[in-house]
């Protein structure tokens, strides 16, 4: 099957969180999200109270996927950057590595130029971590014995319980 699960451990997660936390401060933005291309939020930083982060992640991925489709139609591999300008708030969306999307929400306290500059640096760092995660996933899929998954003992009762039976 053509799928490799995305498994994130504490150490990598902390590193990602640190990078996007720094990006949020350095770019004077309101919120920064790191989203998976399949629509799942990986990490976030900033004032998240007023935002439905789950919907944002899913819609961003949909947006990027649709734009990818457009890119292919005109012979491009992808559009690595999307910018949405609003009356007060703006969204800067960029692709990180093969599977990440970096979303920066900012207002008049920042500028597109500053966000672009800071995103560039953060993207490089994020990409390194993604590559590390992927390498580990590949090596583990080859030698599964080393890694003891907590899900190896999921039972029918566990699943029934999820559905309140």
């Amino acid at each position: 099957m053509g799928k490799l699960d995305l498994v994130m451990f504490e150490e990598e997660f902390t590193q990602l969180q640190e990078i996007i936390g720094r990006l949020q401060v350095d770019s004077s933005s309101k919120v920064v999200f790191l989203v998976d291309k399949n629509g799942q939020q990986i990490a976030a930083s900033g004032d998240l109270r007023s935002i439905d982060a789950t919907s944002l992640a899913s819609l961003t991925a949909g947006n990027v996927a649709a734009t990818d489709g457009l890119a292919k139609l005109i012979g491009e591999k992808e559009f690595s950057l999307l910018f949405h300008e609003g009356e007060k708030d703006n969204l800067h969306i960029s692709i990180v590595g093969k599977r990440g999307i970096l979303v920066v929400l900012f207002d008049h306290n920042s500028s597109l130029a500053l966000v672009r500059l800071r995103v560039k640096k953060a993207s490089r760092e994020l990409q390194e971590i993604f590559e590390m995660v992927e390498k580990r996933a590949q090596s583990q899929s080859g030698e599964s014995s080393k890694f003891e998954s907590p899900f190896s003992e999921i039972t029918d009762e566990d699943i029934d319980k999820l559905f309140g039976d």
């Binding site: 451990f9 504490e10 399949n38």
Partner: peptide, 15 residues
């Protein structure tokens, strides 16, 4: 592609 986050102890599945 399931997303398993050991830091936040979450499994995310897409159906």
């Amino acid at each position: 592609m399931t997303f398993i986050n050991y830091a936040s102890r979450e499994i995310n599945c897409k159906i």
